[in-house]
Design a protein around this nucleic acid. Structure first.
Length: 507
RNA sequence: CGGGCUGUAGCGCAGUGGCUAGCGCGCUUGGUUCGGGACCAAGAGAUCGGUGGUUCAAAUCCACUCAGCCCGACCA
């Protein structure tokens, strides 16, 4: 968006001036443009020559690597092993599970030629790997002693998308998919729950994004699953974002691929399965949850650079200040902080302040001749904008302390935002008013109506479909910890309620 | 797949038939600066998305075409 276009959409002429130098469209003006501006200006990703596919740049990839590291550690702690399966999947494999192929058909990219010849049987590029993995599990599982089989794969997948959004929805994306096989239904269901809890832990603890965990409705579950569990987050425009899913697959894939084992009683039985995944979409979730009109805001635990030192360089003191700053850098690193020193003297301090803020570095340390003389440094927090002095000798311990405070504050701030925008709704009129009638908020601004509607539901898909048609809101999940003692009537049709559901517009 | 917008230097744009295609930012070199997006000077950088047509002459007019983004329906 050009400055002129930006100005054209701004109502208040006084706001215009303060954003003259800005590269980021304010959230209140255009939320989706704001998000794009952040991703591009913070150099997290870029559009690629391939339609619908993005390039993840180092600063963006580093966030993914940190998420990956946390996830991977927990997968291994819970007994899983990593493996790798082929990118190309024979089309006939997908067709073995009826619901599954139906669910993915429109999104498949198909390879028909290779080696200069048309292939006997086309391959599709994996949209997910259940089918090829189950084709192999058939060979690997014979006895209850082979179970459970707990594999995970880090891979790219492709789901052709008509409309894409950086990180949130691209045709090719990176993810992790766990595929497990178990002796019993109970064990498999426990696994699905265990892994969604792993997701919740990583997302809340490291991404500082509060989530609701619960079961998907029939309409929203994964194609081929018996049931789907998900974690759902609220973005700053009050829309929901699914941040991870875990499926109990029952015996559907075992039957489709004829994977039987001899159980402890010596009888043949189909195995019980799960699959679970999180993707680079999580990077989008972090960006959208915490960032502001100045740019990216990152939780310290995901930030490539947790602290940046910006020295104030004057000709008469440049050498001394840089030497001092290098000492501070060493102290920070010794304290276990990921720190960098920006001693480039071709940019002014003010430029650097704005630049590092845009890139989301959680703490900036300013140090100039005056600070040196006074024996302190200036700290600036990215999350609150707060500035304060710290004795130079305490820079390491103080940095650790402030980073922890930021990590905590980001989660709490996001949780408060979500809770403030979650409302109990008891009847259809209120529901429609809550989400606004379809088309009413075409601008899609952050001030749009909506949020999470906490409501009772009869369980009938008809109610769900009607609401979706009229308000675009869908059931995000049936929160796992709120299904006890349901009594009352469905907020949509008035029939006796069977579930408590959270409704929202979603990404 | 519908609706809208846009393709001219790395980015953002100006240029509605005329001779050497401009401006801002960024980039390079040198110098002065430096506590919230500094300044001066000198440079480099474009076969104007593509193809065909009209014309003495096309970035500009016409036709076709390709691509991208945004908004909507579908999806992690």
């Amino acid at each position: 968006m050009t400055l002129d276009q930006k100005f054209a959409t701004m109502a208040n002429p006084f706001i215009q001036r303060s954003y003259m130098a800005d590269k980021i469209t304010p959230r209140a003006t255009d939320y989706s443009q704001w998000y794009i501006d952040i991703v591009l200006n913070a150099k997290l990703a870029d559009y690629s020559p391939v339609k619908g596919s993005m390039v993840i740049r180092p600063r963006g990839y580093a966030i993914w690597e940190r998420i990956q590291a946390e996830m991977d550690r927990r997968f291994k702690e819970t007994g899983h092993e990593n493996a790798y399966f082929p990118l190309l999947i024979p089309m006939s494999f997908l067709q073995k599970e009826a619901d599954h192929v139906k669910g993915f058909k429109p999104e498949l990219a198909v390879v028909t030629h290779a080696g200069g010849e048309e292939l006997e049987e086309p391959y599709c590029i994996r949209p997910t790997s259940e089918t090829i993995i189950w084709a192999m599990y058939k060979n690997w599982i014979q006895s209850w002693r082979d179970l459970p089989l707990l594999y995970n794969q880090w891979a790219n997948v492709m789901r052709w998308e008509k409309r894409t959004r950086l990180f949130l929805r691209t045709s090719e994306f990176l993810w992790q998919e766990g595929h497990t096989a178990h002796e019993t239904q109970k064990e498999a269901e426990e696994e699905a729950l265990r892994m969604v809890e792993v997701y919740r832990d990583v997302v809340e603890r490291h991404l500082c994004v509060p989530v609701l965990m619960g079961m998907k409705s029939e309409a929203e579950k994964f194609a081929g699953a018996v049931h789907t569990l998900s974690i759902e987050a609220m973005m700053q425009d009050k829309k929901a974002l699914q941040a991870g899913t875990s499926h109990y697959l029952g015996q559907n894939f075992a039957k489709a691929f004829d994977v039987q084992f001899q159980n402890r009683e010596g009888k043949l039985e189909h195995v019980y399965a799960t699959s679970w995944g999180t993707s680079t979409r999580l990077v989008g979730a972090v960006i959208m949850t915490h960032s502001d009109d100045k740019g990216l805001v990152l939780p310290p635990s995901l930030a490539v650079d947790q602290v940046v030192i910006v020295p104030i360089l004057r000709n008469d003191s440049k050498v001394a200040v840089i030497a001092h700053a290098e000492g501070l850098l060493a102290t920070l690193k010794a304290a276990g902080v990921r720190a960098r020193l920006d001693s480039d003297d071709s940019q002014s301090p003010g430029w650097k302040f704005a630049e590092w803020e845009m890139r989301g570095v959680p703490v900036r340390v300013e140090v100039g001749p005056k600070d040196m003389a006074a024996g302190h440094v200036m700290f600036a927090r990215r999350d609150t904008g707060e500035k304060f002095t710290v004795p130079a000798g305490e820079i390491g311990t103080k940095a650790v302390e402030v980073l922890e405070a930021i990590q905590k504050n980001l989660f709490e701030r996001a949780k408060k935002f979500r809770d403030d925008n979650t409302h109990v709704i008891t009847n259809y009129d209120d529901m429609k008013a809550f989400f606004g009638l379809a088309g009413e908020d075409a601008a899609g601004t952050a001030n749009a109506k909506g949020g999470f509607a906490d409501a009772l539901w009869c369980g009938d898909a008809v109610c769900e479909t009607r609401l979706k048609a009229e308000t675009k809101a869908t059931i995000r999940c049936l929160p796992h910890d709120r299904q006890e003692g349901i009594h009352g009537s469905c907020a949509l049709c008035g029939a006796p309620a069977r579930h408590r559901a959270v409704f929202a517009r979603a990404y």
